[in-house]
Amino acid sequence: MIAHSVFFYIFSLIAIVSAVMVTVSKNTVHSVFFLILDFISISCLFIMIGAEFLGMIMLIVYVGAVAVLFLFVVMMLNVAEQKGQWFSSRWDGGTHIPVGLLVSLIIFFELIIVIGGWKYKPDLLNSLSLSISTEVTNTKSIGNVLYTDYILLFQISGMILLVAMIGAIVLTYRERTGVKRQSYIKQISRERNEGVNLVDAEKNKGVKIDA
C-alpha cells in the first residue's frame, strides 16, 4: 500500500517536526499550538493502525480539553514579563537548574529503557497471546477488557484523578466575604408585604427608612 505509507510518513513528519517546534519556538502560545498539532497527528497515526477509538479519545481528551486548559494558562501569563525571566542570559541564582537536570536525567534513562526494549520486540511479537480479531470493533474489545479484567485498576485511576481534582480545588479555594450572591429561592419567595412598606409621612418631618 503506497498510499498508506505516504500518509504514515506525512503524519509522522508533522508529529516530529511539531514536537520539536514545541520546545524550540519562543512564543509560548505558539508552543501550545504546535503541541495541539502534535496531538492531532498522533491521533491520525492511531487511526491509521486501526485503533480508531484511541485516536478519537486522544482528540477529545487531549486536544479538546487538556490543550484548551494549557492555552488558557499560557495566555493568562504575561509573556512580555516572562521574556526577561526565562530567556535572558542574566544569571538568576540558577534555582531551576537542578530540577531541570533531574527531569532531563529521568527522561534520558527512560529513553534508554525504551530503546533497550526494542531488542525484545521479536520475542514479544512471537509470544503474542492476544487474539486480535477483525470481527469485533476495537471499541468493543477495549470495553471487554477494561470493564472486566482491569476494572480495579480503572476504578483506582478514577479515584486518583478525583482526589487530585479535589486537592487542586482545596488548594486554590479562598472564601470571599462581602460578596452578594443571587438566591433564586429568596427572589421568588419574596412577597409584597416584605418588599413594600407603607409609611405615613408627617409634614415637614420626613421619614426614616431602615431605622
Partner: peptide
C-alpha cells in the same frame, strides 16, 4: 460510515474552540 462516528462528531466539535481562541488571541 466509520465505527466511531459519534466520537468523531464529538471530537471535531470539541476542536471548534480553537478557531475562536486563535482568532481572539
Amino acid at each position: 460510515d466509520i465505527n466511531v462516528g459519534i466520537l468523531y462528531l464529538f471530537a471535531v466539535s470539541s476542536l471548534g474552540v480553537y478557531g475562536i481562541i486563535m482568532g481572539g488571541w
